[in-house]
C-alpha cells in the first residue's frame, strides 16, 4: 500500500475523525481533552506523513498516533492528581456486584443474564453501539479507565498496572467488575429498547 495523495488523506482524516473522537472520549472521559487529543493526532498525521510506512492501513496508523496521545493525556491527568484513588470506589463498587448475587454466590433471579443473540447481529446494530457508549460513560471513572485500556486499547494487565499504578491482582478485580456492570447495563438498555 502506498501513501495516499494529500486530498485523499484529508478526506480520510475527516471521515475517521468522529471515530477518533468517540474512542478518545471513552478513554479520557473529558470532552475538551478528547477534542485536544484528536486535534493533536490529526496535526501529527499530516506533519509526520512520511513516517507512514504503508504496512498497516492509513486509518490504523492514525489510530496508533491517537493511542499515544491518549496515554500522554492520561499520564498528565494522573500527575495532576485529577484521578480519584481507586480504593474510594472499590468498596462502593463491591456493593454493586453484591446486588447481582445471592449470599450463596448464585445469580439473583432478576440479575440472571439472558441471551443477546448472535454477536455479529449486535455489532451491526447501531443501537448496540449507542447503548455500549452510554454504559461505558455510566461506569465509574476508575473502572472505565481500566476497561478501556484493556479492551479498547488492547494493553495487557501488566501494562495497565504500570499506567494506573495498581497491582495486577487489583486490575483483574476491577476488570471483572467492569465487565459485570457493563453487561448488566447493556442488557437492560439494549434488550429493553429492542422490545419497545
Amino acid at each position: 500500500m502506498s501513501i495516499p495523495p494529500l486530498d485523499d488523506r484529508m478526506q480520510r482524516l475527516t471521515a475517521v475523525r468522529p471515530r477518533l473522537l468517540s474512542f478518545a472520549r471513552l478513554h479520557l472521559r473529558h470532552h475538551a481533552q478528547a477534542e485536544d487529543a484528536v486535534q493533536d493526532t490529526l496535526e501529527a498525521a499530516i506533519e509526520k506523513q512520511d513516517s507512514f510506512s504503508g504496512r498497516s492501513g492509513y486509518e490504523t496508523w492514525v489510530f496508533g498516533i491517537l493511542k499515544y496521545k491518549i496515554l500522554d493525556t492520561m499520564r498528565a491527568q494522573k500527575r495532576q492528581g485529577t484521578w480519584q484513588p481507586l480504593e474510594d470506589e472499590g468498596e462502593a463498587d463491591d456493593d454493586a456486584i453484591d446486588r447481582l448475587f445471592q449470599q450463596n454466590g448464585r445469580w439473583l433471579k432478576e440479575a440472571r443474564p439472558v441471551s443477546w443473540g448472535e454477536p455479529e447481529a449486535a455489532f451491526e446494530n447501531e443501537l448496540f453501539w449507542q447503548v455500549f457508549d452510554a454504559c461505558m460513560i455510566a461506569l465509574p471513572d476508575n473502572v472505565a479507565r481500566a476497561f478501556s485500556l484493556r479492551e479498547l486499547m488492547g494493553l495487557s494487565t501488566e501494562e495497565i498496572c504500570r499506567e494506573l499504578g495498581i497491582k495486577e491482582n487489583n486490575c483483574w478485580v476491577i476488570l471483572h467488575r467492569a465487565r459485570l456492570r457493563l453487561r448488566a447495563c447493556i442488557e437492560q438498555g439494549w434488550l429493553t429498547e429492542e422490545a419497545s
Partner: peptide
C-alpha cells in the same frame, strides 16, 4: 445463566476491537 454471561464477556472483548476501523483487517 453463566454460559450467557461468558458469551457476553467474549462479545464485550470482541466489541473493543471493533472500535478501530481497520483492526479486523489487521
Amino acid at each position: 445463566a453463566c454460559s450467557q454471561c461468558n458469551r457476553q464477556f467474549d462479545l464485550l472483548h470482541e466489541a473493543g476491537k471493533r472500535f478501530e476501523p481497520a483492526a479486523q483487517v489487521q
